[in-house]
C-alpha cells in the first residue's frame, strides 16, 4: 500500500504538485496518467526518494520514505526512471545483476544468479545476456533496465514511462508481464503511462493528475468516461467498447 499525505512540491516559485493526498491499495497495477507537465514524474520521484519531500509524507508498505534507511527502502520499492542512460560499459547480465545489490551488496550468491537468470528469461533477454548494454537498441536497453528493477525483488515497483522506446510488440508484452507479475506475486506496480488505452487494457486503477493536482483516483472502468477524461486531458474523447474492452478514441 502506498499512502501519500498532503504532498506539495515546487521548483523555486513554480509549483509542481499541490497538496496531493491519495492511497494506492496493495497489489495490482495502477496507472499514473495526465497531460505533459502534470507532475506525474515528480510524484513518482518523490515516492522513490529521488527528490526530497518538501511538504507532506509518503509511506510505502508502512515505511516512511523520508525516515527509512536507503538500503531497507531499496528492498521495499524498486524504481525505473525515464531515460536511464547507462554510461558504463556493462554486459546486460551484469546490469540486471545490480538489481540484487540491496540484498547482497555486490557479491552475487547462487540464489542471486538464479534470480538474475529468471529475470533475463522473463523479459526475453537471455539471448542478449552477454551483449554490452551500450550496443543495444533503446527498447532492448529499456527492457534490461526493467529486468534490473524486477530483479530487485521488491513488493512495490514504480515505473516512469516504461513504454518509451518500446515498439507495439514489446509494449504489449511488457504490460502483460507487469500484469502477470502483479497477479502471480501480488506486487504493487505503479506505472506512468501516456497511452490511456494501455491503462484501459491492463491497469486495475487509474490515478490522474493535472497541473499538479489530483483529478481522480479510482478503478479503471469508472475513470474511462468522456467526462472524466475531459477533466484530465482537457478535450473530449469518445470511449467505445471493442471486444468487451473500453477503447478511448483519443486520437480522433
Amino acid at each position: 500500500m502506498i499512502e501519500i499525505e498532503g504532498v506539495s512540491f515546487s521548483h523555486g516559485r513554480a509549483p509542481i504538485l499541490s497538496d496531493i493526498s491519495l492511497t494506492i491499495p496493495a497489489g495490482g497495477v495502477t496507472a499514473l496518467v495526465g497531460p505533459n507537465g502534470a507532475g506525474k514524474s515528480t510524484l513518482l520521484a518523490l515516492m522513490a526518494r529521488l527528490l526530497p519531500l518538501q511538504a507532506g509524507s509518503i509511506a510505502i508498505a508502512g515505511r516512511s520514505v523520508a525516515a527509512t534507511p536507503g538500503r531497507e527502502m531499496a528492498r521495499t520499492v524498486a524504481i525505473l526512471r525515464q531515460d536511464p542512460g547507462v554510461s558504463s560499459r556493462l554486459r546486460v547480465r551484469e546490469l540486471v545483476g545490480f538489481g540484487r545489490f540491496p540484498h547482497s551488496r555486490g557479491r552475487l550468491t547462487a540464489e542471486d544468479e538464479r534470480l538474475v537468470d529468471e529475470a533475463l528469461e522473463r523479459f526475453d533477454l537471455t539471448g542478449l545476456a552477454h551483449r554490452f548494454a551500450d550496443t543495444l537498441s533503446g527498447g532492448q536497453r529499456q527492457r534490461a533496465m526493467i529486468a534490473m528493477a524486477y530483479c530487485q525483488g521488491c513488493q512495490t515497483m514504480l515505473l516512469d514511462e516504461p513504454l518509451n522506446n518500446l515498439d507495439m510488440f514489446y509494449a504489449r508484452d511488457l504490460m502483460r508481464t507487469l500484469r502477470m507479475v502483479a497477479d502471480s506475486q501480488n506486487k504493487t506496480i505503479v506505472v506512468v503511462l501516456h497511452d490511456i488505452n494501455h491503462a484501459a487494457a491492463h491497469a486495475d486503477r487509474i490515478v490522474a493528475l493535472r497541473d499538479g493536482r489530483l483529478v481522480v483516483n479510482d478503478v479503471t472502468a469508472r475513470v474511462l468516461t468522456p467526462e472524466t477524461l475531459q477533466a484530465i486531458f482537457g478535450y473530449r474523447m469518445e470511449v467505445a467498447t471493442v471486444g468487451g474492452l473500453p477503447v478511448v478514441l483519443h486520437h480522433r
Binding site: 536507503g70 536511464p84 558504463s88 545490480f98 545489490f101 555486490g106
Partner: peptide
C-alpha cells in the same frame, strides 16, 4: 568500495534506487 563504485557508475537515480546514500 569497489561494488559501491560499480553502482555509482550507474548514475545517481539508479544508485539511490538501489539503496545507496
Amino acid at each position: 568500495a569497489r561494488h559501491v563504485l560499480d553502482v555509482i557508475a550507474l548514475g545517481r537515480d539508479a544508485a539511490v534506487g538501489l539503496g545507496l546514500d
